[in-house]
């Protein structure tokens, strides 16, 4: 059986005045129906660009310069804009970081929800509103009828993110891309939203790509994980094995940096240095200047992402055997 989504050697470049900048440098991963993948990395690692590349919405001057994106056996980035629009918001939905910003402040929730349904399905306005109501109930919004008539400013942050998720669900998509869906929310609501996403993915058999910098969140709800650094995947595998037994020094650093593994009162761990600017990625392994175990080969050869040891465990590091 084919995968739901197959990304192969995806390469995204930004054409800037002083030259080209590679934001994503040949990443590959697959996702099956109902599977949940977490993409983890620091700011600027290319996580969000990956998400936008999948729905072919990279804003100028960025463009997909190579590779393939296969979704339900269609090559997405070769589709004409018209057909792509029929997939966006219909088969693939996206949830953004800040629910305060993703809803249009001057349109009622009913209008915004109905609009999404009407853009993809040939139904009457009344039917569209019925669908909207049903989805609002699915994301556990109390008194959904009343909410429909309200405007975004009348809802709290958590409520808005639920509404945004409900909008993403409207057309029963096969894949949801959630780009840091809980970063702007406080911790208790984060957990609720994550539980909700997990529950929905399981009940609706949806694929989920969760883009985040929060390893804790990823380990709760995803099955697979891909760690990105400077536009490349440095480690990939099942969430459990990667989180419990990180092999790549960057992943190890990320997990060590979590406060949970420390005695209260002790200093937090951090990875020394900063992620390099994409204009000046060091030669060889991009991580080597910050790496504790780097050797001379690391600054010369780019390590390939290859299987090491366990099944489906991929690591891009010269030093890990």
């Amino acid at each position: 059986m084919h995968h739901l989504l197959e990304v192969k050697d995806l390469e995204v470049k930004f054409a800037l005045r002083f030259g080209e900048l590679t934001a994503i440098d040949g990443i590959s991963f697959t996702l099956d129906r109902g599977e949940r993948l977490g993409i983890v990395g620091e700011s600027g690692a290319g996580k969000s660009v990956t998400g936008f590349a999948i729905i072919n919405l990279i804003s100028k001057p960025g463009y997909i310069s190579g590779g393939k994106i296969l979704f339900e056996d269609q090559e997405l980035h070769r589709l004409p804009e018209e057909e792509m629009r029929a997939i966006r918001g219909n088969r693939i939905s996206m949830i953004f970081q800040d629910p305060m910003m993703t809803l249009n402040p001057v349109l009622s929730i009913a209008t915004q929800m109905a609009e999404t349904v009407l853009a993809h399905q040939d139904v009457s306005k009344a039917d569209a509103l019925d669908i909207a109501l049903e989805k609002l109930k699915k994301v556990h919004i109390p008194s959904a009828e009343k909410r429909l008539r309200q405007y975004p400013h009348e809802c709290s942050g958590g409520m808005r993110q639920r509404i945004v998720i409900a909008i993403a669900l409207l057309t029963n998509p096969a894949l949801i891309i959630a780009d840091e869906p809980t970063t702007a929310l406080d911790v208790t609501i984060q957990a609720e939203i994550m539980d909700l996403l997990l529950e929905l993915c399981e009940s609706e058999k949806m694929g989920l790509i969760l883009i985040t910098h929060d390893l804790g969140v990823v380990s709760q709800i995803t099955e697979k994980i891909a760690v990105m650094y400077a536009g490349k995947i440095v480690e990939a595998g099942s969430t459990q094995t990667v989180v419990q037994d990180p092999r790549h020094p960057y992943t190890q650093g990320l997990i060590k940096a979590l406060p949970g593994s420390l005695q209260p009162g002790s200093r937090l761990n951090q990875i020394p240095g900063m992620m390099p600017n994409l204009t000046e990625i060091p030669p060889g392994c991009a991580f080597h200047p910050r790496c504790k175990i780097s050797d001379s080969i690391c600054s010369m050869e780019v390590p390939a992402l290859i299987s090491k040891g366990q099944q489906d465990r991929m690591i891009a590091c010269h030093m890990v055997k």
Binding site: I55, L57, R85, A86, I87, R88, G89, N90, S93, M94, F96, Q97, D98, M101, T102, L103, N104, P105, L107, E115, T116, A119, H120, V164, I167
Partner: peptide, 21 residues
């Protein structure tokens, strides 16, 4: 603003985005 991006992600045409959002 993000709501415009969101409208694009929903799959609305540019005219719908310009005039309705």
């Amino acid at each position: 603003k993000e709501y415009v991006e969101a409208a694009r992600v929903i799959g609305l045409s540019r005219w719908q985005i310009i005039f309705k959002h």
